[in-house]
């Protein structure tokens, strides 16, 4: 289980996260939604230790990661898989070496076993015969799927998805959503997904949390999210430019003209 308590993060004078409290229960898929710039990705990066919080605590399986010794951090890293927004594949390595990277650094598997695991993971995300290719020769959707294969290769307990469907066509978006559901069933993993895509959010989520102006303002199931009276959430899920969410001022002024 992941517990986030009183999390604050600021960059200089800019407050990005304010007193965020979140629980992620084992086996669930938690989706974090919210307008751009509300700190969703920063929240994920704080949880996995890529960014140090300004204040607050993050507890993963009873280990407080903000103050844990390196040995414990390594143990926690072994439990975490992270799917980056732009895949973040290593350009200089082949697809095979990308997917095998975590297996070589975080596990003690032999090379034969690693190769077999790589093929299995690529099959799981619907890719075949791409092991020898390098990332620049892959399409956007293929890159995302290789990124996903890399994150699940060492079978982590927790998988974090940072906008996994951004920039993909609607069909590929649905394929990725199905993959998230299938991987959860197959790996019995706990997932945290940051997304703007409400169709994908409703499809994969057990619970949805909305961040707005650096705070967590809503938590509920997909059904509760659809039926909520919260005007901010309603505006966001309907995708309307009119409502309490402050949009770009210039854009509003242009509209009035």
């Amino acid at each position: 289980m992941i517990k986030v308590r009183g999390l604050n993060k600021s960059f200089g004078k800019k407050q990005v996260l304010t007193d965020v409290n979140i629980d992620v229960y084992d086996g669930e898929t938690l989706v974090i939604i919210g307008p751009s710039g509300t700190g969703k990705s920063i929240l994920l990066k704080n949880i996995v230790g890529l960014i140090k919080p300004t204040a607050g605590s993050i507890i993963i399986d009873d280990t407080e990661i903000t103050s844990a010794p390196k040995k414990d951090i390594r143990e926690i890293q072994r439990k975490i898989g992270y799917v980056f927004q732009e895949a973040a594949l290593f350009d200089s390595l082949t697809v095979e070496d990308n997917v095998a990277f975590g297996l070589r650094t975080l596990t003690k598997l032999g090379e034969d076993e690693i190769k077999q695991r790589v093929v299995n993971c690529l099959n799981m995300v619907g890719l075949k015969n791409v092991e020898r290719l390098k990332p620049p020769s892959l399409s956007g959707g293929m890159k995302k799927r290789v990124g996903l294969a890399r994150a699940i290769a060492y079978q982590p307990k927790y998988i974090f998805y940072d906008e996994p469907t951004t920039g993909l066509d609607p069909i590929m978006t649905d394929v990725i959503s199905d993959l998230i559901i299938n991987l959860r069933q197959y790996l019995k993993s706990t997932s945290v997904v940051v997304t703007h895509d409400m169709n994908s959010a409703y499809k994969v989520a057990d619970r949805i949390i909305m961040l707005y102006k650096s705070k967590a303002i809503f938590t509920g199931t997909p059904q509760e999210t659809k039926n909520t009276d919260n005007e901010i959430v309603r505006q966001f899920i309907s995708g309307s430019s009119k409502g309490p969410i402050e949009t770009d001022r210039t854009f509003n002024e242009m509209e009035e003209l």
Binding site: K45, G49, R78, Y82, E86, A88, F101, G102, T105, L106
Partner: peptide, 16 residues
Amino acid sequence: TMKVTEQLDALYTLGT
């Protein structure tokens, strides 16, 4: 380029 494309972050999450 690795920094701005989050490849350095990816290294960290993969225990490196």
